[in-house]
Nucleic acid binder design. Structure first.
Length: 256
DNA sequence: ATGGCTCCCCTTGGGAGA
């Protein structure tokens, strides 16, 4: 089973790219982030025509997450527990093919320090609490999406330029580290422990052409899935398409 | 160090992204 994550940066503006990528790579399950569309403007029919069921949690202009699947989807929750007043659509969770799939769009947090960074760290804490609960259920779980964190210096083209940034500050890296240490496996790093792998390239300064990227889209696997992970990768070429997102699709393959 | 680009919207400029 192939599971992918893709921050599309506008699901309607990106629809031709999304449909082409779905047709070419045929993932079984897809987590989307940054829909930038309210619920009623999600392109449901085009997704159905492409052969996917879908659930989504939209929001006007910003954020928004969705899960697509070739098989039936049972929605488990939208939004993380612990913040009933949080209006951002950044988390949706479902049961698909006997796996719990959590699709997340962690806040960017810039400028840091400041209220946006505080919100990022608070969101991270809520994610960690929920993630610990998922692990306690002792069932297969995939937590994937745009974490807006470069976990280590290997994940940044020029680490010294990013030390003050919300995506790379010590507090952010520490939050990711303690999350993983609950018992999760960073799928890409498990298969490629020392390779330079990026999932995002800025639109500016020909970042893609210079390979000046960041690894910020991640797959965390619960222990029940460790022996089923047999491949993972980044569809880097998609970043070179016309009218493309600034993120690349990232995927894993699990044995049945 | 700065600005570069691209998305969105009660749009024609501003906010946000990372």
């Amino acid at each position: 089973m192939k599971i992918a994550t893709y921050n599309v940066n506008g699901v309607n503006g990106r629809l031709p790219v999304l449909l082409r990528w779905l047709a070419e790579t045929q993932p079984d399950v897809v987590c989307l982030q940054e829909l930038k569309a309210p619920d009623e403007k999600f392109p449901e029919q085009a997704i159905l025509d492409a052969g996917y069921h879908a659930i989504w949690h939209g929001q006007k202009s910003w954020n928004g997450v969705a899960i697509l699947s070739r098989t039936e989807i049972k929605e488990l929750r939208r939004g993380l527990p612990g913040a009933p007043d949080d209006s951002h659509s950044r988390y949706i969770e479902a049961f698909v093919n006997n796996i719990v799939i959590g699709c997340l769009y962690l806040p960017n947090g810039n400028p840091a320090p400041g209220p946006k960074f505080d919100y990022k760290l608070a969101w991270f804490e809520r994610l960690k609490l929920h993630a610990a609960g998922l692990l306690a259920n002792d069932i297969p779980v995939v937590l994937t999406g745009d974490y807006n964190v470069m976990p280590t210096e290997l994940d940044v083209y020029k680490p010294e330029r990013w030390v003050e940034d919300a995506l790379f500050r010590p507090e952010t890296r520490q939050a990711f580290k303690t999350l993983v240490e609950q018992g999760w496996t960073d799928a890409i790093r498990k298969l490629y422990p020392t390779e330079k792998i990026y999932t995002f390239y800025d639109y500016f300064r020909n970042a893609y052409g210079r390979d000046a990227g960041l690894r910020i889209d991640h797959f965390l696997l619960s222990p029940q899935l460790n022996n089923r992970l047999h491949a993972a990768g980044v569809d880097r070429n998609v970043r070179g398409w016309e009218k493309t997102s600034d993120h690349c699709p990232v995927w894993i393959e699990l044995t049945p």
